[in-house]
Design a protein around this nucleic acid. Structure first.
Lengths: 341, 341
DNA sequence: TGTGTTCTCGTAAACGTTTACGGAAAAACG
DNA sequence: CGTTTTTCCGTAAACGTTTACGAGAACACA
C-alpha cells in the first residue's frame, strides 16, 4: 500500500541514499537519475512517511495552536477564530506544515497542556492566542528555548519573539474621538477582568484620548467584567448607576457588549437613542444585533496568514537565505459605523 | 534537554528494553525495577518522543479533522465548529491523541488534501465534517481502508463507518408541525444547493409532515441557494414571489436565514409579524438577530466528545476488550422558540 | 538431584528517513 | 598519458522507540 523509499530503490535498482537525495533536490545526483526517481515516485505513488522524516530530522512538521476558550464560552463559540484558523492553516500547509490545535479546558491556563506539547516534541513551534499582560506561557517557552509566536503582545519576556497584535490602543482612542466629535463627554469603558493584554491597551488609548480632549478620566466609568455575555450583563449597570450617567459606552469585547445591551434594555435604555454603544472587536454578532453595533473590525483571515508567515520567518529551517528574523506587527482595526452610536 | 529512554537506561544501569517495558506496563518486569524506572523517569523529566513511537508503531497518535469552510465564509465564521472542536479535542486528548485540523480552501472538495493526509500517514484516522449525499471522500477512504468517522450520514459506502448526525428529518417535520399548529398552510423551505446530505434529510421531514397534515407539497415553495448569507438573500424572493405567498419559511441554515431576512426586510415583510421564520440549526446569530429567530439547537460540545468516542471505539488500538465497534447515532435538535414565528 | 516452569532481563532488529563519508568513474587539465 | 578535479553514487550510521527471541537465574516439584 504505502510505498517506501526502499521500494523506489529496488524498483530502479539504485540505492536508497540516491533516491532520497534525488527526492530532496540535492545537487550531487545526476539529472537523468533524478528524473527517473521522480517518475518512479509518481508511478508508485510514493509519499514520504512523516514519522520517519520527523525522527531523523528531529522536527515534527507541525505547529501547535494553543486556543484558550474563555469560561462559559460553550454556546458562544468564539466566532473570531475560524477565519483566523483558515488563514493560519492555509499558510502553514503551503510550507508542508500541519496545524495541531490544542484547547485547554475553558478557564485553566493551559500551562500543563503546553508542557506536554513541548516535552513530547509534538510540534516544532507553538502559537499562543491572546496573550496576557504577564504571561507565564511566554516565560516558560523562552526558558526552555522552544520556538513560538503570539497573537497579541505581552509585557513578559526580555527575549524577542514574533507577535502579531491589533492596535487596541488606537481603536480605543478612535472610539473616544468619534464619540467626542458627536458631543459625548461622559464615556464609559468596559473590558475583561482577566489580565488579557488587549484590555490594558484598549484602556490606555481610551485614557489618552480623553485627556487629549481635556476630559477628566472618571474611574467610576471604567469597569471590568467576565469576558462573556454574563460579564457584560453584570457589570454594565455598575457604570450606569453613577450619579452622572454616561452617554456612551465602549465595550472591549463583543460578547460583553451583547450582555451589556441586555442590561441596558432592562433599564429601558436604548442603544443608538439613549446611549451610544461602540464595540472594539467586531464579529458577525455585532452586525446582526439590533440595533447593529458600531464596531472595529480586524482582518482575521489575513492575520492568520501573516502570523503563520512571521512564525516561519523566525524558524531557521524555514527562514529565507538572510536567516531567521523576528517580526512584530500591529495591525489596525477598521471602524464599521452602524446604528448603535 | 530532552531525555531519552537511553538516558534512563544508563542512569539506572539497565537495558533500554527493560526501561521500555517498565514504562509501558508490560508484565515481564520486576515490580521493584518498574518502580525505579518510573521514579527515574519523573526525576529526569522523561517523556517519550512521539516520532520514535510513531515510526516504530506505525501510528501517529493524531486524528485529522477535515473542516470544509463554505464558500464566502471568511466573515461569517462557522460559529458551529468551535464548541464542537472543544468537545472533540478534549476527548481525544484524554486518549493521548492530537487533533490536526485540515481546512480546504473554501469551495474545493478537499479530496486532494485528504489524499495527502492519508498517503503521508499524518493521522491515524480522519473525521469528515458535513457529509454530502454522495461523498467521494467516503468512497476514497473505504477503498484505501483508512479509518474514519463522519459528522453527518451519507448514502455513500456499503461498508459501515461510525457517524454522528443530527436528526434533520425530525427537525424539519417538527418545524412544519409547529407552524401548522399555528395556522400556517403555505410553508416554504430553503436549503443549501450543494448536495449536503442534511439538506435532503431536512426536506424529507418537511415533505412528510406536510403530507401528514394533508397539505400538498408545492415545488414553488422549495428553493436551493448558496449556503451563505448571499445565497439566502438571493433565493428568498423567489419563493416570496409565487402567486400564493407563503406565510412561513423554514431555513435550513442560519446564514441563509439571515440573508433571507435581509431580503424580506427590503420587501417590507417583517418576520414574526408578516411571516413566520424558523431556522433549523441554531447559532448565536439567531439569538441576537432582531427579531430573535426561532431555531433548532444542537448540543455541539457533547457532539464533539461523542464523535471522538465513537471514532475511538472503531479503532482496534483504542477499542475496549470487546473489540472495535461501529456506532452510528442520530441526535435530536432542541427547539428554541423565540420571536420570529 | 534432576527436570520443568516461571520470572526477569538483555540483545538486536525493525520502523522510514536523512546524511556524512568515501570511493569509483568520468572529466578536465597540464 | 599522468595527475587533479569533478560528478555521481553506494554504504552505513543515526534518530528514539517497541518487541520477538532467547538465556540465565530462581523456583517448584517429584
Amino acid at each position: 500500500m504505502a510505498s517506501s523509499i526502499h521500494d523506489l530503490a529496488r524498483h530502479l535498482n539504485i540505492s536508497i541514499g540516491t533516491v532520497s537525495r534525488a527526492l530532496n533536490g540535492r545537487a550531487d545526483v545526476n539529472a537523468d537519475t533524478r528524473q527517473r526517481v521522480l517518475d518512479a515516485a509518481k508511478q508508485l505513488n510514493y509519499s514520504p512517511n512523516q514519522s520517519g522524516r520527523s525522527l531523523r530530522q528531529g522536527a515534527t512538521h507541525s505547529i501547535a495552536f494553543m486556543l484558550q476558550p474563555h469560561p462559559g464560552d460553550q454556546q458562544y463559540g468564539e466566532p473570531f477564530f475560524i477565519p483566523f484558523l483558515i488563514g493560519l492553516q492555509g499558510r502553514l500547509a503551503e510550507s508542508g506544515l500541519d496545524l495541531t490545535v490544542v484547547m485547554g479546558a475553558p478557564g485553566d491556563y493551559q500551562q500543563e497542556r503546553l508542557r506536554r506539547v513541548v516535552e513530547t516534541r509534538r510540534a516544532d513551534a507553538v502559537l499562543l492566542a491572546w496573550t496576557r499582560r504577564e504571561d507565564e506561557r511566554i516565560d516558560y517557552l523562552t526558558e526552555v528555548g522552544f520556538p513560538f509566536a503570539t497573537l497579541g503582545r505581552s509585557r513578559t519576556g526580555g527575549k524577542a519573539y514574533p507577535s502579531l497584535d491589533l492596535d487596541f490602543e488606537k481603536a480605543g482612542a478612535d472610539a473616544v474621538d468619534r464619540l467626542v466629535a458627536r458631543g459625548h463627554r461622559r464615556i464609559a469603558a468596559i473590558r475583561p477582568s482577566l489580565n488579557l493584554n488587549f484590555g490594558y491597551l484598549f484602556l490606555d488609548g481610551y485614557r489618552k484620548a480623553l485627556k487629549r480632549h481635556g476630559i477628566e478620566v472618571d474611574p467610576a466609568l471604567i469597569a471590568d467584567g467576565f469576558i462573556n455575555e454574563a460579564g457584560g450583563y453584570q457589570v454594565t449597570p455598575r457604570v450606569m448607576l453613577t450619579k452622572n450617567r454616561p452617554t456612551a459606552i465602549i465595550f472591549n469585547n463583543d460578547a460583553m457588549a451583547l450582555g451589556g445591551c441586555k442590561a441596558l434594555a432592562e433599564m429601558g435604555i436604548r442603544p443608538g437613542h439613549d446611549i451610544a454603544v461602540t464595540v472594539i472587536v467586531d464579529t458577525p454578532l455585532c452586525r446582526y444585533f439590533s440595533p447593529a453595533l458600531t464596531a472595529f473590525r480586524p482582518a482575521l483571515e489575513p492575520m492568520g496568514r501573516r502570523l503563520a508567515e512571521m512564525l516561519l520567518a523566525s524558524l531557521p529551517a524555514f527562514a529565507g537565505p538572510e536567516g531567521p528574523r523576528i517580526i512584530r506587527e500591529v495591525w489596525p482595526l477598521e471602524l464599521i459605523a452602524r446604528e448603535s452610536d
